[in-house]
Design a protein around this nucleic acid. Sequence first.
DNA 1: ATGAAAGCGCTAACAG
DNA 2: CTGTTAGCGCTTTCAT
Lengths: 337, 337
Amino acid sequence: MTATIRDIAKAAGVSVATVSKVLNDYSTVSRATREKVLALVSEMQFRPNEAARSLVGRRSMTIGILLTSGLANPFFVHLLGGIDEALKERGYDLIYLAQLSAHPEYNFVHHCRSRNVEGVLAFGFQLGELDADKLVASGIPTLFIDLNLTGKRAGYISSDNKEAVQGTVRYLHELGHRRIACIAGLPGSYVGERRLAGYHEAMAELGLSPDPDCIVIGDFTQETGYRGMQRLLALPERPTAVVCGSDKAAIGALQAAREAGVAVPAELSIVGFDDIDEARVVYPPLTTVRQDMSTLGRRAVELLDGLIVEPDSPAPAVIVPTALAVRGTTGPPPRDG
Amino acid sequence: MTATIRDIAKAAGVSVATVSKVLNDYSTVSRATREKVLALVSEMQFRPNEAARSLVGRRSMTIGILLTSGLANPFFVHLLGGIDEALKERGYDLIYLAQLSAHPEYNFVHHCRSRNVEGVLAFGFQLGELDADKLVASGIPTLFIDLNLTGKRAGYISSDNKEAVQGTVRYLHELGHRRIACIAGLPGSYVGERRLAGYHEAMAELGLSPDPDCIVIGDFTQETGYRGMQRLLALPERPTAVVCGSDKAAIGALQAAREAGVAVPAELSIVGFDDIDEARVVYPPLTTVRQDMSTLGRRAVELLDGLIVEPDSPAPAVIVPTALAVRGTTGPPPRDG
DNA sequence: ATGAAAGCGCTAACAG
DNA sequence: CTGTTAGCGCTTTCAT
C-alpha cells in the first residue's frame, strides 16, 4: 500500500516521533537526520495521511464550501478560479459538502465538524437565513460571499454593489437620461437589496424622484427581465434608460425591447450587472458592471485563512470595487425623450 | 466540543462498540438498544467523525475531483449540477484537490491517498497525458469524463461526439449543402478528435471529399473560430456551411461572417457544439449540438460509485446521446452556391 | 537530539 | 445480543 510514517522511520533508522518532527518543522532535530528523512520522504513519495493528522487535533488543511444553491451556480465557477489559486498557495483542499438540506435532521454545522473542516466558505445564503446564523454561532471560521454577516470568527466579502449602481445611474444621468427605470434583483438577497439601494440613493442625489412604476421587482432571471421590460414599455411615459439587477435580466429586457420594436440604445439604454460571457455576444453588446469574481474568490480564501490562523483577528468585511464596462446598449436619450 | 461516540455510549448506558454497530447497521443489535441509541444520536446531533472512520479503514465517503483544465470550461457548471444530485443521493462529499501540478514532486496519486479518497472524477485530461495513466495504474477507482481511458478500476463517460457531428453533417447535406467546412477543436483532446472523426466519416459516407482547405484546426476558443472563419471566407470557392468543434468557436465564426458581410444563414450555415447559454442569445440563435451535461455528471458519479463498491466490476465505457438543436444559423445553401 | 508511550474517534475481531 | 480490546497513522508530552 502507501508508505506510512513508520516505513520512513524504519528506512531512516529513527523513530516515528523524529520523522513526525521533521515533517512538522520542529527545530529540535539535527540537520543530518532532517536531511536523511526528507530524502526518504521524497524518494518513497511519502505524504502524511490527512485523516490521521486531523484526528490528533492537528490542522486538517481542509476548507469546506457550502453552496445553498448547489454546485450548479454559474457564478461559483468564476469564483472558483480565484479560490483555486489561493487554495494552492496556502495548501488547502476544498471539500464540497453535499447537503441534504431537505432532510429535517440535516445540520450544516455538524456536517462541517464531522469533516474536520478548518473553515467554511459560504455562498448563496439569503438575508436572514437561519443556517447562516447557526454557522456564525458555531464558532467555525466562516467567510460569507455576498452576504454581510459578521461574528466572532466570521466575516464577509462582496462587490461594491451599491456604489456600482450609483455610478451607473450617474453615468446615465450624464448622458442626459432623466427617466431612469430599474429592474431589481431578488428581494431578500443581499446583493439584490444593495443594488436597489444604490439606485434609490443615486436618484435622490441627482434630484430625480423616480416614478414608483419605474421600479419593477425581479429575481435576476432573464424571464423577469423580459416581463419587467414589457411592463415598463407599456407605461404612458416610457423610461429612456433601465438599470438591471443582473445581466440575465438585462438580456431579457433587451429581448423585450427588440420584440416591441424599440431601438437600443437609440430609444432606450440598458445596463446589466455581472459581465457574464453572454453580455459580450448579445447584440448590441451589453453595457454592464463588471465584478472581479476572481479577486473575490481569491480574497475570500485569504480572509478565511486569516480567520483560521488568527483566532482573535477582527471580523473582515471587505468590499471589492467594480468597473462599468461601457458597450453598445447605452447612449444618449432620444431628442424628444 | 462536538459529541463523540463515547458520549452517546455513556448516555445510552451501552458500550461504544454497540453504538458503532447501530451506526453501521449491524443486524446483531436488539431493537430496543438500537432505538435508544438512535434517539440519542438524533437528540445530541451526533455525527461520526469521518477522519476517524476512514482511518480505521472504513469508507471515507469522499470522492475526489481532479480538473486539469476544467475550471474555465463554460459547461463545467452544468456538469456540476448532475454531479451534485448524484452525490447527495449516494451520500458522498466531493473534495477538490488543489493540485500543485507545477511542483516537480507533486503527485496526483499520493494526493488522493493522503486524503483517503474512495474514487476520483477526472475531467480535462488530454489524450496521452501521463498523469492519467498513473491514475489508472494506481488502482484508485477513477472515472474519466471526456477521455476514453479504461483500466482495472477505471472507466469513462462522454457524449457521443462522433455520431453527433455525423448527424450534423447529414442534416446539412439534406438541406442541400455540399461544400461543408469544419473548424475543428483542439487536437489531442479526446472530444476534439472524435468530433473531427465524425466530420470525416460523414463526408466520406455522403461521397463528399472535403477540400483540405475546408478543414481548419482550432482549439475550441472563440478566437480560433473567428480566425478560422476568416480563412474559410477567403477561399476561392467558399463553403456554404461550417461545423464547429464548440459553440465558442461557432460564435467566433458568426462574428467573422458578420464582419465580412456574409449573411447567416442565407449565405452561410453555422453549427456549434455544446449548447452553452450564449448559444441562445447570439443573433441569429445558434444551431448546435446539445450535450446532456447534467446526465453526464450524474452518471459519472453513479458509475464511479459502481467502481468503488464493486471492485471487480468491468470498466464502464458509457456514451451519452446528444441532440441537434436546430435554431437560426442553419438553412438551405444559396441558389447559386 | 531522540525515543517510548499515550491517545485522537472510530471499527472489527473476539469473547462472553 | 453486548462488551473488551487492539489498532488505523499520526502528533505530542515526557523522559532520556
